[in-house]
Design a protein around this nucleic acid. Structure first.
Lengths: 342, 342
DNA sequence: TTGTACGCGTTATCAC
DNA sequence: GTGATAACGCGTACAA
């Protein structure tokens, strides 16, 4: 690569001092320079293609204009399309604010201490964390130490900053839809093992919805998958074998729903005629599955964008109106639910 | 956050100089210190929880131990599960080598000059680029300037370093499979507009495969989608309306295949009885679609890992045996192809 | 309006 | 074996 251009080079070319260069370039507001000087500096910088060395800038300013995004390997491998959506939301906001994203994928598990390296090396100014686990102590410590961190999801920690959404209302709607179609035995295939807050949240929302209609969610009606469509398939086989009376299944997410549908077919059940399926997330492909998936919309792009906005506000010291944003989800009714077979 | 610990603090606590601290901590090979001093330093660092400030380290060493990954928004939104797979492969290798990934999503389009900011701010040491476009001049310039960059895909540039794979053999197999099943009119729905190397490559592989069997790929048998399942649906509708004689479709990737299947159904064609479909990539969900998708496997995790390995080797000045790695793809035969209707 | 001088935390070089 | 000193490139008081 061609030799790097320093502020010194720019200064020389413009015939001014490095101070002037720095001031002109960084303080656009300061009208404290002659338009002529200003112009010369800008011109020289452009001619030379000057880009400040970010390391030096970081060192002196103490921040990196970079936010970390931590994702467990399991998630990234298999929650599939959800992560990119969030990423997209974050990316767009970042670009507007000149921030960068450092992606850290960590081995799964409680992962104690895994953020510390990132945080303490000062490589990042703040952190966005997807799908936290309830038992993540390292994370709690970070929050309590006031490290700037925004959750996509929630830890139900009083001090957390988070973008979360409520599945209650739309889950309730979905339950109503199914109950009205005559379903009495409803099951669930969670997207991950117990311990993830989102898993428990979705399960609870379903339970409450069912109870409100005089139904229930027996433990025998719940299986836990493990992120992938494949695991969804296996879990559904187990579930329907144990509880063949079940006529409707809530899938923990849309990827799991693919597995649910495939397992149903493998067991000789048509969807939706013999088994109704409700997904979760409304990933872009959901509407194009066969049958088109009825699912609870959880706008990942929006959540990513909001999380990034909030984090950047915190980092810039701007006031944040609400530190715990709660969005409403929305039921997308499509073709995967039908009247209960009799 | 608690005050940061500098090497100076460690030095004081251990009763040695900063130099000693640095040498002990960074040069595990240098036997040039008394075991006792060595121990004292290590102990002090551990007690204080010392983590070197990465900005300072970057400034002096000139590299950031970070690799950039540039992804166009369009990709990340819609090629969906492919990107996370690659990311996963990269992440694993990086973790082993202590590297980080900086993710830059750029607005789509030719995007001239978009990497420059990243590159010249010295924020990253090297770059991995997915799915390059043939007309990306900024990229070519970067390669010609010897900036360390590894493509996942290819630009067919003599100086490039790339991880690529050949779809020829397995496309040929797929064509044979279909031809043997009696299909004569085969179409294609590309995953993106013309201009992406991978789009053209897949199309050419198909054309050659067909010609080898005495068939052809007329222009009227090709439609271009635009990354999403939805666009695959629309493109397929157009294709099958224009060429109702087509009985088998190669989808540009598995996400597009979802759209192809859904469009076929919407037009009253059963898959695979009335229309055979071949996907591309073998994303984790492909085996669980209904019908299970016959697809050309393109191991994204492996490609990501290989790209990261290669880039890190280049960065560390290690010899790289092959700068243009070419993997073989593999046909996964499942349920989405059947005898041509007559 | 501009220049000088210093600090940020680390590492390399060269004395001791 | 160990320690002082000088960079790395930038931002910014402070002096001029």
């Amino acid at each position: 690569m061609s030799k790097r251009v320093t502020s010194h080079d720019v200064a020389r070319r413009a015939g001014v001092s490095r101070t002037t260069v720095s001031l002109v370039l960084n303080r656009s507001d300061a009208a404290t320079f002659s338009p002529e000087t200003r112009e010369r500096v800008l011109q020289a910088a452009a001619d030379l293609g000057y880009k400040p060395n970010s390391a030096a800038r970081m060192l002196v300013s103490g921040n990196s204009e970079t936010i970390g995004l931590v994702i467990s390997n399991k998630d990234i491998l298999s929650v599939d399309a959800f992560v990119p959506q969030v990423l997209h939301g974050i990316g767009e906001v970042n670009q507007r604010h000149g921030f960068h994203v450092l992606l850290e994928s960590l081995a799964s598990g409680p992962g104690a201490g895994t953020y510390d390296h990132l945080v303490e090396s000062r490589r990042i100014d703040g952190l966005i964390l997807l799908n936290p686990r309830q038992d993540d102590e390292a994370l709690k410590r970070l929050i309590e130490n006031k490290f700037p961190i925004v959750l996509v999801g929630t830890l139900r920690h009083p001090e957390e900053a988070s973008i979360n959404y409520s599945a209650s209302a739309s889950t309730r709607q979905a339950v109503d839809l199914l109950a009205d179609l005559g379903h009495r035995n409803v099951g669930m295939v969670a997207f991950a093992p117990p311990g993830f807050v989102a898993v428990e949240g979705r399960k609870e929302a379903l339970r409450r919805g069912l109870v409100a209609r005089g139904l229930d969610l027996a433990d025998s009606a719940v299986e836990h998958a493990n992120f992938s469509a494949e695991s969804g398939h296996a879990a559904t086989r187990a579930l329907l074998t144990r509880r063949p009376d079940i006529t409707a299944i809530f899938a923990g997410n849309d990827t799991i729903a693919i597995g649910v549908i495939s397992a149903a077919r493998a067991l000789g059940r048509r969807v939706p005629e013999d088994l109704s399926v409700v997904g979760h997330d409304d990933l872009p492909f959901a509407a194009w599955l066969s049958p088109a998936l009825t699912t609870i919309r959880n706008d990942a792009v929006r959540q990513g964008a909001l999380a990034a906005e909030m984090l950047i506000s915190i980092l810039e010291g701007k006031p944040v109106a609400e530190r715990r944003v709660r969005l409403q989800s929305e039921l997308m009714v499509r073709q995967s639910c039908a009247a209960a077979p009799r």
